[in-house]
Structures are given as structure tokens and as C-alpha cells.
Nucleic acid binder design. Sequence first.
DNA 1: GGAATAGTTAGCGATATGGCTAAGCATGAT
DNA 2: ATCATGCTTAGCCATATCGCTAACTATTCC
Lengths: 113, 113
Amino acid sequence: MAKHDSDLSLLFRALADPTRRSILTRLAETPARVTDLAGPTGLRLPTVMRHLSVLEQAGLITTSKDGRIRTCAIVPQALDPVRTWLDEQRDIWEARLDRLDAFVMNVMKEGKE
Amino acid sequence: MAKHDSDLSLLFRALADPTRRSILTRLAETPARVTDLAGPTGLRLPTVMRHLSVLEQAGLITTSKDGRIRTCAIVPQALDPVRTWLDEQRDIWEARLDRLDAFVMNVMKEGKE
DNA sequence: GGAATAGTTAGCGATATGGCTAAGCATGAT
DNA sequence: ATCATGCTTAGCCATATCGCTAACTATTCC
């Protein structure tokens, strides 16, 4: 299940880690060097590097190296597929709310296990 | 990192699996039994059970048992935290687009590695 | 009661994830 | 040339994930 995963899976997995989300939030302020990103996390450089590569593979950030310094920056449109999927789901879920209501009523009547 | 994870992490991790997303989409149509959900996936029952418990722990579905049949249904508002986080990020990301633009220009000028 | 059905539990194996240290390499400063 | 800085690679360890089979429990049907 880890071979040719969809973009969506890569994105969701990248976002599933608090450290990575905090890195993203930090990068949203301004691009930063790897060391700068490592600081707040309290994690070692190699560990942060791994997080960064996960983020980059998911397309959430880009990095570029100038001399010995690698600078990381967010890719603003990278979250679009997530938003799209979420919107689709909302559409479907709400379209079926009538049936759901019926079901929930039923559950409540019987008591949930 | 797997101990007391935030709701957001649980949600994102639950959504990171294609099988689980397809189960959610299926459940959005109408509540269903475990066996009904297993069918389309081609997976064995215990495997599907595991996916369901991940979804349930993330708060994305509820289940209730009537006799020997367990019925599963989506929890419509469960995606709200995800949407909220996404909206927050969009706000921040776009607020800083000016700086980002400057950075991107810089990168392009130097050639990306 | 006995058999079929629906789900559950236990546990195995392969792989992925998230942390680390140690060592290496390239660049910039002196 | 030497040394400090910044990143990178390799590899280890513990735990988590995702699939499975086998065996068990609980309903329902005949």
C-alpha cells in the first residue's frame, strides 16, 4: 500500500504529523533554513531533514540550495487537492443527510453499544 | 509520537489511507454493515474491521450493533476541524504571499537545485 | 439442536515511521 | 591551510501499520 500512492494519500500522511504541521506553519511566515526549522522542534537535524523530505515529496514545500544553505518555502497551492476532496465529501455527505438523520434517530431509539 | 495525539493528527492519519477514504465515500451514500463495506474493497473482514476502528477513533464514523449486525455511519461534522485548519493555513499562507513571491523570484533567478 | 451467518479476537509477517548517533562532505570564514 | 558551519548519508532501534489466517463468539434460521 506504500508503492504508488495517490497525491491525496501523500498529502494527508504528510499532514498527519504535528511536527510537520508546525514546520508548515512556521514556513508560512517566511522561508527558512533547515537549521532554523530544527531549532523550535528540539529535534536533531537528520530527523528534521526526514520531515522536510516528506513534506517535499507531498509537494507541500520546495527547497533550494545556495552554497551550503538549503532554504525551504511552502507551495501555496499544494493544499488545493485536500480542499477539493473535502468540498466533494461535504457535498455528498450533506446530500444524504436525510437518510443519515433517519439512521441516527434509529440508533438513538435503540441505545448505542 | 503515537501516545496522546491531537484530534487533527488522528483525522489526517485516518484520511491518509485510500481504503478508508473509499469506505467513507461509500458510507456517505448510506449507512452499511461491515460485510457490505468489506465487499468492494476485496479485503478480509478483520482488515476492514481495523480500518473501521481507525475511522471510529478519529471520530469520522459511528457504529452500533443490532443483533449480530454492526451498522456504520459517517459523522458529518467530523471533518470540521480539518476544514478549520485548512482555512487557517490558507489565511496565513496568503497573507505572506508577498514575501513568498520575492523568494520565488530569487530562486528562479538562481536556478533550482 | 444444528448449521449458516456476522462479527470479533489473537497473533503473525513485512514494511513504514520517527527518533537517534556517528561519520562524511561541501562551503565560508580566518 | 585550517577550522567552523550546515547539511547529508548510513544505519540502528522501537513502535506502528496493513495485510493475512485461524479460531472463537453470538445470532439467526431450519
